[in-house]
Amino acid sequence: MTSLTGRCMCGAVTWTYAGEITRNLVCHCADCQRATSSPFTAFLGMRPEHLTWTGDIRHYESSPDTLRGFCPSCGSRLYFRSGKWPAEIHVHAATMTDPADYRPDAQVVMRSRAKWLDRLPSIPAHDGFQQKPSGGAPA
């Protein structure tokens, strides 16, 4: 059994989970890309009966029988729930108290994977935002 906690960006919504993790996956589908404004989404599959939420959650029905939960205060995406998987709720791994602990074991819908992700290992990486160029005219 796994015990996890998480929250939205502002902390208005929190969650706790104690149970079996049913999936650890990275989804590259176009719906996840649009819903999260990112090239992929990392999910933890959880049993709803072992998941507890506090705070106000709003829902967007992105397709029939598919809900995406989010915090109305800060807009953080919290989870995906679909009638296709009635015994699971897919919580966004980035909402974990320590997202660095997340370890996906699968990638899905690879046909929609953003091609530019292949370039990431070959482009410069920085610990922070790049500095402004030196020189030039003052602003």
Results as ranks from 00 to 15, higher is better:
Trp85Asn: 01
Ser38Asn: 13
Met46Pro: 04
Ser37His: 09
Arg47His: 14
Ser82His: 05
Gly83Cys: 03
Thr97Cys: 02
Thr54Arg: 14
Arg81Ile: 02
His28Trp: 07
Arg47Cys: 07
Gly69Asp: 02
Ser76Pro: 10
Trp85Gln: 03
Gln33Trp: 00
Pro72Asp: 12
Phe40Asn: 05
Cys74Gly: 10
Pro86Gly: 09
Pro48Trp: 09
Gly55His: 09
Val26Leu: 13
Ala35Trp: 07
Ser73Trp: 01
Arg81Trp: 03
Thr97His: 09
Glu49Gln: 14
Ala93Met: 04
Ala30Met: 11
Gly55Phe: 12
Pro48Asp: 10
Leu67Gly: 00
Gly69Tyr: 01
Pro86Leu: 11
Leu25Ile: 07
Leu67Ala: 11
Asp31Arg: 08
Pro48Arg: 08
Ser63Leu: 00
His28Tyr: 14
Leu51Arg: 12
Ser73Tyr: 04
Arg58Tyr: 08
Thr95Ser: 15
Cys74Ser: 09
Cys27Tyr: 04
Gly69Lys: 01
His90Met: 12
His28Val: 05
His59Val: 02
Tyr60Gly: 03
Gly83Ile: 05
Gly69Arg: 00
Ala42Val: 00
Pro64Ala: 09
Trp53Ser: 02
Ala94Val: 14
Thr97Leu: 08
Val26Met: 13
Phe40Ile: 01
Gly55Ala: 12
Thr36Leu: 13
His28Ile: 04
Ala87Lys: 15
Ser63Met: 00
Cys71Leu: 08
Gly55Gln: 08
Leu44Lys: 06
Trp85Thr: 10
His90Ser: 14
Pro86Ile: 10
Phe80Pro: 05
Ile89Ser: 01
Glu61Gly: 00
Ala94Lys: 10
Cys32His: 11
Ser37Pro: 01
Leu78Gly: 07
Glu61Pro: 04
Thr54Tyr: 05
Leu25Ser: 09
Thr54Asn: 14
Phe70Asp: 07
Asp56Ile: 04
Glu49Lys: 09
Phe80Ile: 05
Thr41Lys: 05
Ile89Tyr: 01
Pro64Thr: 05
Thr41Val: 14
Ser73Glu: 15
Arg34Phe: 03
Ser38Asp: 04
Met96Trp: 03
Glu61Trp: 00
Trp85Tyr: 12
Gly55Cys: 10
Arg58Asp: 09
Arg58Thr: 04
Ser82Asp: 05
Gly83Ser: 14
Ala87Thr: 15
Glu61Leu: 00
Ala94Cys: 13
Ser82Pro: 11
Ala93Asp: 05
Ala35Thr: 14
Val91Gln: 11
Pro64His: 06
Ala94Leu: 11
Cys74Gln: 09
Thr52Gly: 03
Val91Glu: 07
Cys27Asn: 03
Cys32Val: 11
Pro39Ala: 14
Pro64Arg: 02
Asp31Ala: 09
Gly45Asp: 08
Cys71Arg: 04
Ser73Asp: 15
Thr97Ser: 15
Val26Pro: 04
Thr54Met: 10
Trp85Ser: 02
Arg77Pro: 05
Thr54Ile: 06
Cys32Asp: 13
Gly75Pro: 01
Ala35Cys: 12
Cys29Tyr: 01
Phe70Cys: 06
Glu88Gln: 15
Pro39Lys: 06
Thr97Asp: 14
Met96Glu: 11
His92Gln: 13
Glu88Pro: 06
Pro86Lys: 11
Val91Tyr: 08
Phe70Gly: 06
Phe70Glu: 06
Asp65Met: 06
Glu61Met: 03
His90Val: 00
Thr95Cys: 15
Pro48Met: 09
Arg47Pro: 00
Cys74Ala: 08
Ala35Asp: 12
His92Ile: 13
His28Cys: 08
Tyr79Ile: 00
Asp56Ala: 13
Cys29Leu: 01
Ser76Phe: 12
Thr95Ala: 13
